[in-house]
């Protein structure tokens, strides 16, 4: 790991213990989270069109289940994530998994106005959502947020920082830590979140913008996170409704993530 301070100050580093030595520069951090990006997923399914409500929900949940597996190995590659308590790791992932999947969908769709690129072999036009009750509202929110990212000319480096921020910020305002281990894990989490914000600020500083424009851009990007949380909550409710009405069979990891979420909300 890269020493953050010049070698001349090495003796003082020893007093700061591991945290100090393991602090990466924003550039290092960006490299790590860019490398952590999951591979593209192909559904490799013969999709009979036009979709029915159940065939579309089946395809969407099948894709989500595959993406969740990749998302967990992605999270483990975020520097410092595996040093958090297992309870925190689980809590963070269960709070934000749909936000992460939706941000990934927006990123894949950013250059395709009016379309949602769920996967290279599963691209939907807005109106194809009409066959699923209640999903048009969510598709329209996803398309609106995606066009905002297009307007902002979101960069890949910014996208990966936002995704890490969503993961690390997802349970900031839930239960306050009690035990010493929880306090320590939360402090690690706060430091980690600072590293991601530092990395995003660093990326924006490389875009040739004035310092005021940089500050505004940081604000615009982080404000979008609240829209993503909103769409994700709508999506979670919709999926729970589809499951309850037996429109689609939800199983395995997706069922686990959905249930912990609904039990959490209820």
């Amino acid at each position: 790991l890269h020493l953050e301070a010049p070698l001349s100050s090495l003796p003082s580093l020893r007093q700061h213990g591991r945290e100090r030595r393991s602090a990466m520069t924003p550039e290092q951090f960006i490299c790590h989270i860019m490398e952590a990006e999951p591979p593209e997923i192909y559904l490799m399914e013969d999709m009979k069109k036009p979709f029915t409500e159940s065939s579309m929900m089946m395809t969407l949940t099948h894709l989500a289940d595959k993406e969740l597996v990749l998302m967990i190995s992605w999270a483990k590659k975020i520097p410092g994530f595996v040093d958090l308590s297992l309870a925190d790791q689980i809590h963070l992932l269960k709070c934000c998994w749909l936000e992460i999947l939706m941000l990934g969908l927006m990123w894949r769709s950013v250059d395709h106005p009016g379309k949602l690129i769920f996967s290279p072999d599963f691209k939907l036009n807005r109106d194809e959502g009409l066959c699923v009750e209640g999903i048009m509202e969510i598709f329209d929110m996803l398309l609106a947020a995606t066009s905002r990212f297009r307007e902002l000319k979101l960069q890949r480096e910014e996208y990966v920082c936002l995704k890490a921020m969503i993961l690390l910020n997802s349970n900031m305002c839930t239960s306050s830590p009690e035990t010493a281990e929880e306090v320590e894990s939360r402090n690690k989490l706060l430091r980690l979140l600072d590293s991601v914000i530092d990395a995003l600020v660093w990326v924006i500083s490389k875009m040739g913008l004035s310092s005021q424009q940089q500050t505004l851009r940081l604000g615009h990007l982080t404000m979008l996170l609240s829209h993503i949380r909103h769409v994700s909550n709508k999506g979670m409710d919709h999926l729970s409704t589809m499951k309850r009405k037996n429109v689609v069979l939800v199983y395995d990891l997706l069922l686990e993530m959905l249930d912990t979420n609904t039990s959490g909300s209820s």
């Binding site: 967990i72 190995s73 990891l253």
Partner: peptide, 13 residues
């Protein structure tokens, strides 16, 4: 969280 726990605790490839 059996599946989630299993994926979190297995050594990544």
């Amino acid at each position: 969280h059996t599946k989630l726990l299993q994926l979190l605790t297995t050594k990544s490839e």
